[in-house]
Structure formats: C-alpha cells, structure tokens
Nucleic acid binder design. Structure first.
Lengths: 312, 312
DNA sequence: CGTCGGCCACAACCATCGGTTGTGCTCGTA
DNA sequence: TACGAGCACAACCGATGGTTGTGGCCGACG
C-alpha cells in the first residue's frame, strides 16, 4: 500500500469528487480514478459510489476514512522523527524498561504535547559523542566512569538513584528473605550476562564487586532478559541484579522473587546529560520537569561508586 | 512513501542484516538494499551503518523504528476496518458529537480491546438497509417513525432519552433564563437548517411543532454546526435546539447559552438497532454494556413522539 | 599474513506500474 | 433535447523497482 494513494483517498473524500481532488494533488482526474480503483482492488471493497456530480463515500469508505487519516498522521510523525532541525526531543536511556524510561514516561504524562523519541545507545562514550554531534538531545547515564571526565561542553545533573534488587528463582537459598544485606551476598553466584568491559555500567559493577567482595559472573552471551529470567527461575544457584524501578513483563508461573538489598543499598546513579548549547526548546522543559519531580535523594544507607559526580 | 519499504526497514532492523531480511521478504538482497537506500534518500538521513557482517541501525534509524512499527500497525488496522468477516464492530450514529457518540466513547473506555468503527448514515431507512445487508452492525436511531415499522429481522432497544436544550446568543430574549418552558418557546423563532423531510429526525421535530405550536424554520442550507453557532450567536431573534449531551467545541467569545427546556422536557429517544442474526461477537458485548449502564429513563416530565416504541 | 567467506553496493537489463492524453458514457439540468 | 460536469476506459510512454552478475570490504581462520 502506498501512502500517496491513501492521501488521494482522503483528499477525494473531503472534496467529494475526483476532479477537485486531482487539482489539489496536481495530477489528472484519470490518475485519481486509477489510484482509487487500485485501492479498492487492494482492499476488496468499494470505497466510493460514483454519481453524476461527484463521488461519495460508501459505508466501507466511511469506516476506512478515519483510519486513513490516522495513517497519514503517523506517517507525518515518522518522517518528523528524523527531520534535522525541529525534530522530536531525542533521549538516550540505558534500558527500555529501566528507571530512565520510567522518568520519560512520567515526563510524557506531564507534557503529552511534546514529541519524544527514545533510543538506546551502547555506552556513555557513544552517548556523549551523539550529544556533541546533535544526533541526540539528552542521555540518562552514570557519570563519570574513572578516567572519563565529561567534556567541557556537556552538562549533567544527577536525577535518580535507583536501588538494586536481587532477583532469584523460587529454589534459591535467599528466595524466602524479605531483604538481604550486601554481606549476605558474598559467596552467592550473581549472573549478569552481557556486561561489556569498558562501559560505564561495567565499571559500576566492577566497583561493586571490589568494594564488597561479591561474585558477579558475566559469562555467556546475552540472549535478552526473557532468557535470563528463565534461567534464573530454574537455577537455584544463580541470582541476578535488577534495577528496582525496572518494569518486568513478569513470566507467569516462574515464582521469581525480587528482594531488596540493604546495608548498604547499592544504587545506580542516573544523571541527565545534555549539550551546553543545545537549543531544543523541549530540553529545558525536560530539565525543569526532572528538577521539579526529583525525589531528593538521600544518600544515607546507600552505596554508589566514588567516581560518581553528584552535579556540576 | 510505500509501506512495503517501511516493512522492509523493520524486517531488516530486526534481522540485523539485509540478506536475511531479503530471504524473509522473498526478494533478493539487492532489492532490499535498493529499498533501504531509497528510504534513506527520501528521509534525508542514514538509517543503517553497513558493516562487514550485516547492517545495524544508526541513531536516526533507532528513532525511526518505533514510528515505522506504529505505521504498520495502523495500516493493519486500516485494512482490517473494511475486511469482510471479523472486521471491527461498525456502528452508525446520528451525529459525531451527539449522545450516541458519547455512548460509544463510554463503551470504548469500558472495552478498549474491542475494535470499533463509527459511521454516520443518512436516516433510519438507510441504516436499516445497511444493517440488513451486513454493512453495519448496529445503529443508534429513533424508532419507528410513522408508517415505518421495523422489519421482523431487526431488533431494537431504547437506550437513551436525550433532553433537548435551547441554544441562544447573548442578546436573545431568553438568554438570561436558567430554564425555559415549552410554552415560553411559542412565538420564538427556532432555526434548524438541514432538516431533510422524510427522515426520522424530521418526523420528530414535526411532531414537536404540532404538539406545542412551536416555530421551527428549516430554511437555508446547512453549512455545518460551526456556521450555525456563529449565526445563532450573532442573531438575537434566533435560537436553535441541541441535544443536551452534545459535546461542543465551544467557540470562544461568543457568549452562547445552553438553556434546559421544561414542562415538559422534549427528549430525543435513541434506540439501538441490530440484526437478529448478526453473529459479531462484540455486538453482544455492546448490548450488555448498554443494558448495564443505561440510566433507567424516567418518563415523567418528558415528552417524546407517540410513535416511539420503548422496546420490543 | 594471506586467503576465504559473508555481506553489501553498483551496473546492466527488463517487466511492470503509474502517469498523461484522448475519448466515451451517464446523469442531472437548463 | 441538448448541454455540461464528472468518471471510466484505452493507448501510449517514461519511471520505477525488480532480477542477475559482479566487485569491494572486512572479519575470521589456517
């Protein structure tokens, strides 16, 4: 199906006749006739009843019309999403179901009129490069991993400390606990496939391991969170970490447990990053929204790597 | 823009390489390459970075991908809206902003999983024919105008009595009233352009005029409710009737008044009509919903034409 | 370090599609 | 009854989008 044909249908429906629609679209009446005929052939229904002074919608045509309009609207937004200059605010998050995505959902609820696009980049290195090039407008990341100070033209503000939770299957030794201390985790195998050395999140877990003597295994390829959850659910000796704000599509019948971690609670520090000179009007709105809704983060009883900066 | 190309983009993005996408789409790799190149040329941005073992999305590609998926979803629904058999429930209402449309909005809120299409037919004659032919599944209409008994195979149930309200401009003689009686309306000019003789709604107003000696002028072409409202707002001698459940996009600064009518309150009787043998599963859901949410209509103090049937 | 294999892009070729012009038909109207 | 408005059909033709064939690039592996 061609969107030009859909547009022709909408224009013809509004005009009530093919002739006028043809003029509006700068084609001949015969072209409009052929397009509509092709659309009707594709759909297998008649969309217009041709009369001596025009064409009016059939019932099927009436039913199709709002869908056709919606189709054109969505297409317009799709094109706008990649249009340089005045495109939707484009924000990088670390995981589509993580805390940053939750913040963006909240922002969308507060400002549904602002067009958003959410992307997921590889690491903070990539994100900073994308911010500087203008490919994205903002990023939620942990800053700044050791030896990776932010460039001068990148600003950041810490917006959310997300507590880590332990995820276990029903047969795990800690499955029955209401909460566990970090000290209790020593000796247990924590499995986090897909950790890539050199990224800022790998640095986070490296620090966590060094600080508390944990055992985190990053072995094996990452087949996605569904496969991870399946394995954890079925393997008594394995547990994994998960952001406490993560929205899970909970696999039913697996008996998975999410257990808070305490003494201290490891938190993953999300900062918003953006370019000093970015002129996108929605960026200021996003920053104001985050500042207004930020839960003043209480550092007592929590742990984050020493290299994390709190603001600048 | 061609939806085949959009689909190619989505498949290629999922596959991570053109080769596999080509196999899935049953075309050659070269065709996929050309399609993607054409899409990139149209959009003016690069969507994939080509590597030695595949193609991965650029940031623009990532931003475009969800919009592309949405586009395909909407297209799917558009096609489904006219597919014979298992198409969305198609309901005829008398006006897009009237009471019946409000009932359908309520039904949608209660059952968002049910696909709906709303159409507006000319009169009950057309609606009954459409119901019998299967072109629509249900209709909200006043039944049955004099001499027009419903056919045997059409069932109906009265679902809503909508009180009429008087709509006046700020300079109208009755503009200051909190409510008006029908008797007070005698002698005032009530303008309702667009009434077509022979329709069931024309019969309703005919009866209203005959019963209470009102003056309803149907003169002049109907340029739409916006033009009607403009005229009423500016003309002190004119008022019009409007369904009390009508949702207006209120023209600002016009000072329009909606005034309830009493002694008695004329109500427009909406019934749901459907075909006895219609097998659409959602039709039963709609009937159950309407039965459950129906405000038990209290006939005291209201007026409706004598030919209106209350149920069957 | 060279070779191999996988994958994408370019070129040439060709059928189909979608546009135009020209014309005929129907229907409402003067 | 003749006319005009509007849509459909036919013939024609350039553009589009597919195929096959081929070459270049890059990572893997011996």
């Amino acid at each position: 199906m061609d969107l030009d044909i859909v547009r022709t249908f909408v224009v013809a429906a509004d005009a009530g006749q093919f002739q006028e629609a043809a003029a509006e679209l700068a084609v001949t009446q015969q072209a409009v006739s052929k397009r509509i005929a092709a659309l009707e052939r594709n759909l297998g229904v008649r969309l217009f009843t041709r009369t001596a002074r025009g064409a009016e919608l059939t019932i099927d045509g009436q039913a199709f019309l709002p869908h056709a309009r919606e189709l054109l609207r969505v297409a317009e937004r799709a094109v706008a999403s990649v249009r340089p200059g005045r495109r939707p605010l484009r924000v990088d998050v670390i995981a589509s179901r993580g805390a940053a995505a939750g913040l963006m959902r909240g922002f969308y609820r507060a400002h549904p009129e602002i067009d958003l696009d959410v992307v997921m980049l590889f690491d903070i290195e990539t994100a900073v490069a994308a911010i500087r090039s203008g490919a994205i407008d903002a990023s939620f990341r942990a800053v700044a991993a050791p030896g990776r100070p932010l460039p001068e033209d990148i600003e950041s503000v810490r917006v959310l400390d997300e507590p880590l939770e332990l995820l276990t299957g029903p047969a795990h030794a800690l499955a029955g606990a209401r909460s566990v201390t970090v000290a209790q985790l020593a000796g247990h195998r924590i499995w986090m496939p897909g950790i890539v050395p050199g990224t800022e999140w790998a640095a986070y877990y490296d620090d966590l391991v060094a600080e508390f003597g944990l055992t985190i295994e990053a072995t094996g390829p990452n087949f996605g969170s569904d496969a991870l959850l399946d394995t954890v659910a079925d393997t008594p000796a394995l547990a994994t970490f998960m952001g406490g704000h993560t929205r899970l599509v909970w696999p039913s019948g697996h008996g998975l447990r999410r257990i808070p971690v305490t003494d201290p609670t490891p938190v993953y520090p999300h900062s918003l990053l953006w370019h000093r000179d970015n002129p996108h009007p929605a960026l200021g709105t996003l920053r104001a929204h985050l500042a207004a809704t930020a839960t003043g983060h209480d550092a007592t009883g929590t742990w984050a790597p020493s290299w994390v900066i709190s603001s600048r």
